[in-house]
Amino acid sequence: MKEALIAENLCKHYGKGNTSVVALDNVSLALRTGEVVALLGPSGAGKSTLLTALGLIRAPDSGSIAIGGQIVFDNGYRTDPAAFRRKHLGFVFQRANLLPFLTAEENVRLPMELDGLGARASAARARELIESFGLANRRDNLPSELSGGQQQRVAIARALANRPELLFADEPTAALDSALGRLVMEMLRDVAHEHQTAVLVVTHDTRALDVFDRVLKMEDGRICGQERSADVANERSRRE
């Protein structure tokens, strides 16, 4: 497996002077293609900040990020982050964040059409993705007509539309019950393995950690531990 992402010495501060808070403190990590990695940590540990930095949503103060061998950030963006996100990155959030005025299929088509793919080709791929997530009969429904779990599946399908090299998920199961949460996690794992996409999942949910290849622990803006998910899951069952 080759490196899908290499981040080195990422730093991010919020505020100034005495009120300054360190959100990322020299964080370095690497993700390999087809790997599913969980990022655990208490609130305020810097997980979401790290995800927004790696996802080119909010620039870190310093450090460097290389995705797919291309340096995209080195103390400043080296590429157009919007265009890069469109072509190489996918996102899933706690809320599905589907555009309410588009149907399920249109939501999945959107990233492809934004990237210049024709309507016919994008519709065909959108249908394929939606069917693969078991929503063939819901493709013409608006998000308001879908359940939370169905919305989240559409969001994952949308994230995969442009065949991203990296998929970032921020608390994707927080709004779902445990069974549905596990299902979504398994979907993300399957996506990573089938599409050779590196998946980084920020989560509090420790119940489905066995689906991950690795678990990174974060605290006070630093990655303070790294374990195989099986070990973490065993430790959790021992405690229970």
Partner: peptide, 16 residues
């Protein structure tokens, strides 16, 4: 605004 932010996240060009 939220939808616009989502569009930006998906990499929509400013023209869109």
């Amino acid at each position: 605004i939220h939808d616009i932010a989502m569009l930006k996240l998906l990499g929509a060009r400013q023209g869109v």
